[in-house]
Design a protein around this nucleic acid. Sequence first.
RNA 1: GGUCCUGUGGUGCAGUUUGGAGUGCACGCCGCCCUGUCAAGGCGGAGGCCGCGGGUUCAAAUCCCGUCAGGACCGCCA
Length: 609
Amino acid sequence: MGSRAPGDGTVVMRTRMAGELRPSDEGTRVELCGWIASRRDHGGIVFLDLRDASGVVQVVVDPSVAGLEAGHRVRNEWVVRVVGDVRARPDGTVNPELTTGEIEVATEELQVLNEAEPPPFPVDERVEADEVLRLRYRYVDLRRDRMQRNLRLRATVNRAIRGAMDEQGFSEVETPLLIASTPEGARDFVVPSRLQPGSFYALPQSPQLFKQLLMVGGFDRYYQLARCMRDEDLRADRQFEFTQLDAEMSFADGDDVIGVITEAVAAAAEAVTGEAPAPFGRLTWHEAMERYGSDKPDTRFGMELVDLGEVFAATEFRAFQQDAVKGIRVEGAGSGVGAGDAVMSRSQLDALTDRAKKLGAAGLVWMRVGEHGAIDSPVAKFLSEAEQLALVDATGAEPGDLLLLVAGERMLVNRVLGTLRLDLGRPPVTEGGLQFLWVVDFPLFEALDDHGRPIPAHHPFTMPHADDVSLLDSATGEDLLKVRAQAYDLVLNGWELGSGSVRIHRRDVQERIFTLLGISTEDAQARFGFLLDAFRYGAPPHAGFAVGIDRLTAILAGEENIREVIAFPKTQSGLDPLTGAPGPIDPAQLDELGLQIAPRAKTPEPKTP
RNA sequence: GGUCCUGUGGUGCAGUUUGGAGUGCACGCCGCCCUGUCAAGGCGGAGGCCGCGGGUUCAAAUCCCGUCAGGACCGCCA
């Protein structure tokens, strides 16, 4: 129960929480504290809704009673303390909309703890407030149900994750925030050193190197809810600062890591939804690209990519004489038979074609499927009857469907169709349940740079796939891109939740990778020599992972944007409307740090005609 | 760096396409009335740099250019 005695000499301001009162409390004297959520002043009687962290209860005040005159004066968001008795509401005045709607508090004492100006936007959520206003007055916004719900949900996620990791024998270890620049690919946030003028710390993009050092240090199983900072442009799913469940384990392979992380993430989902999530799927990277055209497939809906190579193997149509021809089937979006809201107009199809071209495709072929496999398309005349029939057969198209086809280099075709698939079929965040998916066997290198050197897809400490190690020595050029890594991603409803890998723990293998990447021995030594050194002193085989907590929480909360699950986020241009950060600093501070601000290159004046 | 969308009393919108008086709706705010409301109700009232700057025009919230802020996305985030 909420009733407490002071004990330590402090004054207890309240005995109960507003939202927890029930008919069983009838007759109880309660002391409540909170904000006025709403007032309904009838003159001789005033109804106040008192809101605290637990919810709302109706408080009834008779302002004609001596000492209760403030009943007329109080306004929304004033902070008050109420003493009174819980009583059943009179017949016909029960409010089934409120969990406390069967009772009310008959006020005997009304104390104004603090007056308040009218809030810049209503705390009640009937109308959506402008986001910059919400951020500027975040402390008001935080009173609203949505933020209360989301941040408490986030706390539930953190609690469940810590519980699951603890149970699996992981120890939470903190790592430094002021570090040397780490080899992640993002731009560092940088902190000037006062004691070493001209030198800089970097804020961690992740605790990557430290967790590997913890493995060398014999911690065996480490995790941390780690703040990470990356100075890259912001998006709906990206903030400068974000939080990861960061984990690393020794004497373990990729499947061990997948098992552990599955356990923790499923525990978080279950803590929020009340039921265990569906079993996590698993696809190879190659399969994900071929079937969904993405390395983070949204498997809440079908519309999979169909390989039409066989169908057009001997085609006369030049546009389809390519590395790959693939298509997607958009149900009911064709003309005629199945005509309805889903049907796409000619101008919509033109827009789709533009979209495909912007994504790099040479073009987009659309086909409307009619009765008996009849095909209506600008290119129908170039296709044989047999090809048309085989096409309908291969895609499983029904009358009224629309087919979208792209031909060209295979991975380009996959990416273009994968994007169109999302444009046309992706459900809102609140629909389709939770589709967790492991994507495994990522390639070790994602591309070749201008000098023909491979660019690591994950990071340079990623262990190559055991079966592909020999390729590392023999392969050159494009063939290097076939080398698979022991790297894996966790995907939820088309969002990349996180990634991990088995790490290289042997110095000789690591040096071979550096050589391939064109990182010289001196360069490697300068950037992360301490890690290479550590590997000389008995590094265990180890593997790890990191899960984006902001993204996981957003999806569990049914939010499209991670700002909704962050107490004090920044806008897309990296500003905090509440504190005004970032701002200039005192010249004396600059001086102390040995820094000077270079004059910014002015943008050229607009040309006068 | 780029593309698209948005900016109108404290709040949320309409008005911009087709230039013609700051016009309108809802909420909030202030005052008065009101003893069973819960989006309380009734009467009255206050509140505007139409983001900012420039241009076109007899006339600009409206058209043009620039700029600032916000959002979505591309680039970027190995």
